[in-house]
Design a binder for these strands. Sequence first.
DNA 1: AAATGACCAAATTACTCATTTAGTCAATTA
DNA 2: TAATTGACTAAATGAGTAATTTGGTCATTT
Lengths: 191, 191
Amino acid sequence: MAIDRKQLIIEAATKSFSLFGFKATTMDQVAKIANVGKGTIYTFFKNKEELFDEIISSLISEMKRAADEAMDSTLSFHEKVHRGLYQILEFRLKHQLTIKLFQEEKEMGTPAVMEVMIKLEDAILGYLKEKIIAAIDKGEIQECNPEVTAFIMLKLYVALIFDWEKRNEPLEKEEIAKLFEQYIFKGLSNR
Amino acid sequence: MAIDRKQLIIEAATKSFSLFGFKATTMDQVAKIANVGKGTIYTFFKNKEELFDEIISSLISEMKRAADEAMDSTLSFHEKVHRGLYQILEFRLKHQLTIKLFQEEKEMGTPAVMEVMIKLEDAILGYLKEKIIAAIDKGEIQECNPEVTAFIMLKLYVALIFDWEKRNEPLEKEEIAKLFEQYIFKGLSNR
DNA sequence: AAATGACCAAATTACTCATTTAGTCAATTA
DNA sequence: TAATTGACTAAATGAGTAATTTGGTCATTT
């Protein structure tokens, strides 16, 4: 069997998107890195966006896998959510592609990137929502709106991991878990 | 006593900033609206940014006043925080100047505007922090890091009021209060 | 049948130059 | 004489445009 051209293209595109972002990656460049004629790309992908989408879909799967691996059925719900969310958000910090896209979204607002980031957020929210519904069923947590709860959990995590360190010393993983427990699971009240 | 030129300038600038934003407001325009020579502006303000700063300082005072008025010493801490924060964020939605600046910050990233928005956020966080410290002292809430707590409360509110409605039906004021109570004050846990 | 790269219309960029702007200061006013 | 003014300047901006680059196609090659 000859070399898998589709795979070469995907790898080349991933490398280039990671290095230069979506907008600054040209199809000529991808073709050159993949050692492939430009036309070949278009036999596998309708256009640049579809190539991008396929890469992001893989990324989402990878994230889900990482989150699942970080969990453990013996853990309490809140430990599970903490580890899963932390894993997902760590992903953003560690993987070149997500870093670059995150930056491109904020700094240039490239439409294709914005779209994909929404898809990514939806995937995380959907994943969280499932876990929350399961936890309610098992009686691990109180009745609550799973959609809003997933949303609040994600926002809280993003705030603690990304927003907080824009102006303060970064919080340790343990501190974040503790804060998450204190606010979402225990509550601040004295009553 | 002759007309208060400084006040005229402040009023003219406020009007123009509200209508056109910081960048699109020219000093000539402010002078014309204020019926004042351009040079006069520079006898009261070192430059355009200082004029802007003075206006924002007033805005912050106004916000504080609005928040204080919305509170009532007979209310529980969480009702107080809810009403105060809600008032402050409503401010953003209702007042021309804040709407325009919020927009200018996101769409154009005008440096002077970015700076001032940080100042505004800091003012809100400082205000919240004070209330939290007082509540801890009075034993109304558990011990906690007032800085982080203020940060979390603000982020949660912004998420519920601004971010949520980007993709969903807006939440009612009462729903927001309920969610705030459920998550921050009561906690989700069953244990 | 699969792969290619020259080709094209459309988009983007680099550049220029006329206009606008923040801030100054000599002249004017009260 | 102290406050006010607006013509003035250097710097910044942005409209207009020419030149380049890009995504995508398709006739040709392998």
